[in-house]
Amino acid sequence: MRAYLSYARGSFLSGLAYRSGFIFAILNNLVYMTIAYFLWRSIFGDNQTLRGLTFEQTFLYVTIASSLMVLLKTWTDWEISWNITSGSIIMSLVKPLKYQWMMMAQSLGFCLMNFLSIVVPSLIFLVFVFKIPINTGVGLLFFPVAIIFSFILNTTIDYIIGLTSFYTESIWGISSTKDIIILFLSGSLIPLQFFPEAAQKVLKLLPFQAMYHLPLMMLVEPEQTASSYLVSLSVQLFWVAVILILARLFYNRAVKVLRVAGG
């Protein structure tokens, strides 16, 4: 455990090396919030609610989604791809540690750095400048747990995507396709409620909504009963199990094709 934590610490500290980037990353998130504010205000027009959400709820949903995306952007897939194509993965494989957990620990360190440097400043801005009221309710207690599941889902999907580099060096294509699919189908760009009924039914059967939509609804509608949030958490848990099993199966298969030339 301590060995893995040192990986998390390492990636956390390496994030500090690029401090000048933080200001632009914060600005990036704020620009998104501002544009989203005007866009959704224009969409709502004179309507009090659309698809069961008020403007405030929708705005909270999309801005927290954007911050969550920043939080979860840890480049794990790119890192693995780089390890594989450069051959440096061999140094990780000879260590008495599981490669998957090493990568997850690194991703966690990155995540914490993103949280402190980008997400917290954005949230302060959101609360004080846009003055978005956050309702209180039992859902707020479940939200942090749901975020942990989102993190596991996200890193494990990144891990699987990274492992495709055993077969192809085209990480840009695969990773950006993955980003777009998650962006669009998870509800992080447009709340799931706005999709046509039939599409919503399909989206609720996919793992992507468990990454964004389910946790976000805990924040947007925190006054539901605890049991409804427990249902959300179990859906997340189900997908965590499925994705982890897939990752293990894929790794066992993919690692067999590894050939590292010299060193």
Binding site: I43, W172, S175, I180, L189, F194, F195
Partner: peptide, 26 residues
């Protein structure tokens, strides 16, 4: 790589159109 990147490009080019399409359903 060209083939896979083209698929990535195709999807990312269509996202905004998909956003417009979903929004104009409401």
């Amino acid at each position: 790589d060209f083939f896979i990147s083209s698929i990535g490009m195709f999807f990312s080019s269509l996202t905004t159109i998909a956003v417009f399409w979903v929004l104009l359903a409401s």
